[in-house]
């Protein structure tokens, strides 16, 4: 598997030579990656290699200091915060390892949030959210609070929230990191098969090879850049 680029001409998401630092730590040093529509890409690499930072830059959450991120042919890294926020909620979904659900909101209310932002109206939002929970096998959890859900159940709710707006890309940062193998497999199965059926691309950060094997393609990061073993450093 080559690691740097997908099918260049049809790339939906394209990051070029990204640099990003946190204080004195250089998380990204010239990382480039492309993601085609409907593709499942795994970002892997050792801890501190910049996988999560790259994911958040691709998702328009973090802003790189240098380099560019383009979605659907136009740059998103230089958009103002408000525009990026709107882009994120229409085009992207995000699943984290844990702790992303709002603790006061029930499962179905958590899933309703992106729809309410798009002014779908209460009843319509609730119907759509319930349908998604049902689709992800979490219909029985609709009225449970996140504190009462198991790790796997929380991830199902989080995935429903990420998928409910019909995003073009779902970003998942260690989605199975807090789960045992079997629950993790379950979550990956649901994420990948649902994304495939809706045509969404998936960008996945993981250090678990079995999770990475769900992806069509793997991009290995090392020291903030895409690892190319042919280049002697």
């Amino acid at each position: 598997m080559t690691s740097t680029d997908g099918s260049g001409a049809t790339a939906l998401l394209r990051a070029h030579a990204l640099h990003k630092s946190f204080g004195r730590t250089e998380a990204l040093r010239g990382a480039s990656v492309e993601v085609a529509a409907g593709e499942v890409v795994a970002l892997t690499g050792p801890s501190g290699s910049g996988k999560s930072t790259l994911l958040l830059c691709l998702a328009g959450v973090l802003r790189p200091e240098a380099g560019s991120v383009a979605y659907d042919g136009s740059r998103l890294d230089d958009l103002p915060e408000a525009t990026r926020t709107r882009l994120r909620r229409r085009e992207f979904g995000l699943v984290l390892q844990f702790g992303q659900l709002v603790p006061e909101l029930s499962a179905v209310q958590n899933v309703m949030v992106p729809l309410l932002l798009e002014r779908h109206g209460r009843a319509a939002a609730r119907t759509a959210a319930l349908a998604w929970l049902d689709r992800l096998g979490a219909a029985g959890l609709a009225d449970a609070l996140p504190g009462d859900l198991s790790g796997g159940e929380s991830q199902r709710v989080a995935m429903a929230r990420a998928l409910v707006t019909g995003p073009s890309v779902v970003f998942a940062d260690e989605p199975t990191g807090s789960l045992d193998r079997v629950s993790g497999e379950d979550v990956m199965e649901v994420l990948v098969s649902t994304a495939q059926s809706t045509g969404a691309a998936v960008v996945l950060v993981t250090h678990d090879n079995r999770v990475a094997a769900y992806a069509d393609r793997e991009v290995v990061l090392r020291d903030g850049a895409v690892d190319d073993p042919a280049v002697v450093r």
Partner: peptide
């Protein structure tokens, strides 16, 4: 207490002003 879920809402597209 809720910074992680708040940050993730923001990443999902909830404006900071909300």
């Amino acid at each position: 207490d809720r910074r992680r879920s708040m940050a993730s809402l923001h990443a999902l597209g909830v404006p900071a002003t909300d």
